[in-house]
């Protein structure tokens, strides 16, 4: 029997082309009285072996973006290309096959695992569906559990409720990685874990990335966590990307006022009285986003132009792109 988990033959593994290309992604949900646009025209790329962090507050569309990349559900419009294969518009069965190359890890590891199944079966499920023989699957499961720091002889027969939250997340990671995906979409993977456990899971994800050459889309509301694990960070606000740059640039030299505000709001673990400025108000309803720049209603430096002209994401420094008419550094938007 073939090992269906091997990368497909049409995958482009040689060139320096990005593994994941997302173009003009839009995701709309029908709601009473119209549409809710959760993701508005989002474009980004993730290189092989790279981790792209996606940060923003609740309701900003970061999870929806991750879901739309996986085609769970398929985006309303836009293109998702994974390793040269265009996923958008693929027939159902081909999409299913292609999805094996991307795996998802969720926030709450306990509810993400079937409480009635044993750990060894949970991890093996993807392999079974892919048609891998029992013996071979068992071998892979043992190996993968070992890789995430668990012994199949100890945990194999257990069910999720017999494990701690951190252990469940390890099982979830093993289940995702056993199919040898190229892309791992992590949706708040450490948000429900205690700090002492959070570090274990972050280190594990980092080890897996380097060891298996994975690419990651790492979604989180926690800038310190995202900064630690990501090569680049994309900041979202109300369905739009507002800034995208290498991690250190985002945290040390942010250009968008929202990124600045988000950084100021991250509780500092240094004991200092200076907490920076506080952002006014709360995130507006995505049902009826503000005109022009969506952040203008809370922006400390908004001007008339911000209410009328939608700022485009543009490069203001090498590798740093920002959607703001009046970025905190670099040229102002003279053209528009």
């Amino acid at each position: 029997m073939s090992t269906a988990v091997a990368p497909m033959s049409d995958v482009d593994t040689t060139s320096a082309k990005p593994l994941l290309t997302v173009d003009n992604l839009v995701l709309r949900y029908p709601v009473r009285g119209g549409y809710l646009e959760a993701v508005s025209d989002v474009s980004f790329q993730v290189a092989r072996g790279e981790t792209l962090g996606l940060v923003g507050e609740s309701g900003c569309g970061k999870s929806s973006t991750g879901r739309a990349v996986m085609h769970l559900p398929p985006p309303t419009s836009g293109n998702v290309t994974l390793g040269g294969q265009r996923l958008t518009g693929l027939p159902r069965n081909e999409l299913r096959a292609a999805r094996r190359r991307m795996q998802l890890i969720f926030q709450d590891p306990v509810s993400a695992l079937n409480p009635r199944r044993r750990v060894r079966d949970i991890v093996a499920e993807g392999l079974t569906i892919a048609g891998v023989a029992r013996e071979a699957a068992q071998e892979k499961v043992t190996e993968m559990l070992r890789l995430v720091g668990m012994d199949i002889d100890i945990v194999g027969e257990r069910r999720p409720h017999q494990l701690s939250g951190g252990q469940c997340q390890r099982v979830a990671i093993a289940r995702a990685l056993v199919l040898q995906p190229e892309l791992l979409v992590c949706d708040e993977p450490v948000a429900s874990l205690d700090v002492s456990i959070q570090g274990q899971v972050l280190n594990l994800l980092e080890d897996m990335r380097t060891e298996l050459g994975l690419s990651m889309l790492f979604i989180s509301h926690d800038l310190s966590v995202v900064h630690n694990i990501s090569d680049r960070i994309a900041v979202m606000y109300l369905g739009k990307l507002v800034e995208m740059a290498p991690s250190d640039t985002v945290t040390r030299k942010p250009a968008h006022p929202y990124t600045r505000a988000l950084l100021d709001a991250v509780p500092s673990h240094r004991d200092t009285e200076d907490h920076g400025t506080t952002l006014r108000g709360e995130i507006p309803s995505p049902m009826n986003p503000p005109s022009g720049c969506r952040f203008r209603t809370r922006c400390p430096i908004a001007q008339d132009k911000c209410a009328t002209v939608v700022p485009e994401l543009r490069e203001i420094a090498p590798g740093q792109r920002v959607a703001c008419h009046f970025p905190l550094h670099g040229d102002h938007d003279a053209a528009a």
């Binding site: 002492s196 945290t251 673990h269």
Partner: peptide, 25 residues
Amino acid sequence: SALLRSIPDIEAEIHTKLATIPGSP
């Protein structure tokens, strides 16, 4: 001290290994 060490520090280098506390509470 272990707790303070295990928190990711936004001012540290990216991809810094985090100090961890083995086991669970």
